[in-house]
């Protein structure tokens, strides 16, 4: 690993899915790293490959996905490449759930309705921490208290249907954090929740992150929560990271036309009301038999014919830690982004 302080380094990750219609190139050469204690936001629309990337880090993708590249994880026993580990072997099991854990999108479908909440949180502690039933119950209850579940002793023996959505999400967070992971992957953890509860959960993740000193990979399509949560942002489009940089850079001077469009299409409360929102025309194409050149070509306002549809853009550094993959940006360096008003 070239960066010592990185907890995980993903290099040139490719994920292909075989379908009847052909090969779907869902993730096409994704490279990023997450430092210790840092929160990286992975932003993109549905179908851009965010969730597949997350699942690849835990090696829990469907067997019909063929994955290549490398995912270097700084584990307790030194640096390992997760993709080279056998997916059912003891090494990955020692990492999955213990050193890297994940919060999933919909709390309502992540729990089995047949087991009590405590039972399901316990699964993790008994696998990784202690075989002792009493002790593991204590640890689980303590974690439930930490994530703000009132009456944890009583709640421990309740079933998922007795919990509200916000409470279930807390239980899911407790489950993910009970083994004190080094890296937490949060895949749209608040999309299914109301704003007031969303704010509570986001604050909770932030507090626990500080306390447990973990790194977080925060995956979402909501630019509002990214602005609140992340130190750095990586914007994904059609299986590629098109722009990455510190959160303020990305919001205040986005460079890639897709990032600009994405930020422009969200209305900010308190800003003077614009008549129209900026919108990116067209829809995300399906990643089947993609043509050569930039994936954003046919939706892009700044496209250069004869360049963008011929050659894939290479990542260019436009500022400290701010990297963009766009031909148009390479041509007009020094200019403050593109005009979208």
């Amino acid at each position: 690993m070239d960066r010592k302080e990185s907890i995980v380094q993903v290099n040139n990750l490719h994920i292909n899915i075989k379908m009847d219609e052909g090969i779907l190139t869902a993730v096409r050469g994704v490279t990023f790293h997450i430092d210790r204690g840092e929160t990286l936001g992975l932003v993109g629309e549905s179908g851009c490959g965010k969730s597949l990337t997350c699942k690849a880090i835990l090696a829990i993708n469907d067997p019909k996905c063929s994955t290549s590249g490398e995912i270097l994880f700084n584990s307790d026993d030194g640096v390992v490449d997760i993709l080279r580990l056998p997916p059912k072997g003891s090494e990955i099991r020692n990492i999955r759930g213990k050193q890297i854990s994940m919060i999933f999108q919909e709390p309502m479908v992540c729990f089995s309705p047949l087991y009590t909440i405590g039972n399901q949180i316990n699964e993790c502690t008994r696998l990784h921490i202690t075989k002792d039933k009493k002790k593991s119950r204590e640890i689980s209850i303590e974690m439930m208290k930490k994530v703000g579940i009132a009456n944890a002793e009583k709640r421990y023996d309740q079933y998922p249907h007795e919990f509200s959505g916000g409470m279930l999400q807390r239980a899911l967070i407790a489950m993910a954090l009970v083994c004190n992971p080094k890296l937490l992957i949060a895949d749209e953890p608040t999309t299914a929740l109301d704003v007031t509860i969303q704010a509570q959960i986001l604050e909770l993740i932030k507090e626990l992150q500080k306390e447990l000193k973990m790194s977080v990979l925060f995956v979402t399509h909501d630019l509002g929560t990214v602005a609140r949560m992340c130190d750095r942002v990586a914007v994904m489009y059609l299986g590629k990271i098109v722009e990455t940089g510190p959160v303020e850079e990305i919001y205040l001077s986005p460079k890639h036309p897709y990032t600009i469009g994405l930020i422009g299409s969200v209305h900010k409360i308190g800003s003077k009301r614009k008549e129209r929102l900026y919108s990116i025309e067209g829809t995300v194409p399906l990643a089947l038999n993609l043509p050569a050149g930039c994936g954003f070509y046919d939706r892009c306002q700044c496209r250069i014919d004869g360049v963008c549809n011929v050659k894939e853009p290479e990542p260019v550094e436009v500022g400290p830690n701010h990297v963009v993959s766009c031909h148009a940006v390479g041509q007009k360096t020094g200019e403050e982004g593109h005009d979208i008003e």
């Binding site: 704003v195 007031t196 969303q198 704010a199 986001l202 604050e203 909501d222 630019l223 509002g224 929560t225 990214v226 602005a227 609140r228 959160v247 303020e248 919001y251 205040l252 930020i263 969200v266 900010k268 409360i269 308190g270």
Partner: peptide
């Protein structure tokens, strides 16, 4: 007031006081 204060504003420079 509580509802408004919970809205995540898509601007990292805006401070939130929930």
């Amino acid at each position: 007031e509580a509802l408004l204060s919970s809205v995540p504003v898509a601007d990292p420079t805006v401070k939130m006081n929930r």
